[in-house]
Amino acid sequence: MNNILTVSPSPHAHGKETTQKLMFGVVIALLPALFSSIFYFGYGAVIVTVSSVLSCLIFEFLIQRFIFRKPITITDGSALVTGLLLAFNVPSNLPVFIVVIGSFVAIAIAKMTFGGLGNNPFNPALVGRVFMLISFPVQMTSWPVPAGLNTGYTDAVTGATPLAIIKEGLKNGESLSQLVTQIPTPAQMFLGNMGGSLGEVAAAALLIGFVFLLIRRIITWHIPVSVLGSIFIFTLILWLINPEKYADPLFHLLAGGVLLGAIFMATDYVTSPMNPKSMLIYGIGIGIITVIIRVWGAYPEGVSFAILIMNAFVPLMNAYIKPKRFGEEVKNG
């Protein structure tokens, strides 16, 4: 019996989950949407995605190596997820230099200045995206029309997103029944055959990813369901008031980045609340702000802003909204 024994406090067993596995789970869940966007937008989608992922990884590596001088953790997959999500949020014909600038803002400013993974208050990919949207409004809002695998990169035909069509049309005094011919049918939108950011168009592919995330227990249902539910209810009320002025709920759910935002962006671990009660409030907040921006705001799309705004409330919610602890209220029966 000469073994020197190891001693540590309990528990002596650990589950199989690791940060890396969770992050790669998210990456797997994003793959269907990636494939469908390559299918619709061709080379452009590949170029933008690869440049975004690579530059995110490189920026994270450089900062950890030369500024933090701490162990390098780019293998944990979080920069990979940020890179993918950033690419998913931009048009597929975006010049590479803008993608690189966006990645820099996402990783260096939104993530690493706060101390890296786990400390950033705002979703890095969204900060990068919003930065690009404000700095390069022209490039960021010229949406290539889906044209199949062989679409070129910069010479793609561009058009407006369904949301932009409606916003523009309503501003010009047209009614929805006049505009309906210009927007894709719900079936087309479900499959992703419309203009938009490269990852947000294919609702079907995003939902496959959602199911995977739920089965793999990477996320819980609370945030996506509350975001989608609140958008549905809010737009339903508006639509019932005046169907000529307000688009129907199904359109709002399928158009733009709602699904991508609700499933992948709002559920980002670091920037979402910790307990189910606040997750629901957070989701509902995102839904309402999104609809407000879409219907009354200056931008046709508001998911990114809505998520960033609600991100700001997360620390407050974590501090003040507490789960009901076991044994807190006495209920017998």
């Binding site: 020197i4 024994l5 190891t6 001693v7 540590s8 406090p9």
Partner: peptide, 22 residues
């Protein structure tokens, strides 16, 4: 002489509450 190896968090308080030490 060290008679065991401690692998918990490097914090004397936790180690002290756990056992005699290494």
């Amino acid at each position: 002489p060290r008679t065991s190896v401690y692998t918990g968090p490097a914090d004397c308080r936790i180690l002290h509450n756990l056992y005699t030490g290494e």
